[in-house]
Amino acid sequence: MTSDALWFVGRGSGVISLVLLTVVVALGIGARSGRTPFDLPRFAVNLLHRNAALTAIVFLAAHIISLLIDPLAPITIFDAIFPFSSTYRPFWQGLGTLGMELMAAILLTTLFRHRLGARGWRAVHWLAYLCWPVALAHGLGTGSDNNTWWLWAITMICLAAVAAAVFWRVSPRFDPPRRRVAVRPFEEVR
């Protein structure tokens, strides 16, 4: 592969990964509702959430590997492991490394969640709300396309999608899961 091709793969896979992550986060927020978006069955929403996440990880891997082997991209393995150590736009590139590591934590804890227990798994899963904005910022800040209208458009659409999910989540139309009143604290009744 030529360096040009690697450069296109690197940018393209990064953008696709970001779009997929946006889908994952929006579905994750929506999945807590008693009503599912578009009246999909709940297991379908659940599987879409999972499969989109796994696909995003595949594209993320392609993104990192292609840029690592591209001789012209100013990134080393060291930069891909330690955030904010790169010489090229250390902050914006470091966000990418950080986002990848957060995703790795979410992936690993999800694979072993039956052994980890619901509470620990959930705690780590909350990192998704940090991971997604980090990835979004990384795309705008590092990308050499950050002056192009299409990258801005994609970023804005992603932002709008998650904002819409959050808006629906906090709106009164959001039907919370059937049960949960918290465990009633036991007051003395005597």
């Binding site: 008693g34 709940r42 297991f43 659940n46 619901a118 899961p177 059937r178 049960r179």
Partner: peptide, 24 residues
């Protein structure tokens, strides 16, 4: 004690499970 009535199990195993009126 852990079940929140999300209803996935009843969708995936309709042969064995149904959801009650509260979703459990």
């Amino acid at each position: 004690t852990a079940c929140d009535g999300r209803g996935l199990c009843a969708e995936l195993l309709p042969e064995l499970l149904e959801s009650d009126e509260w979703g459990f």
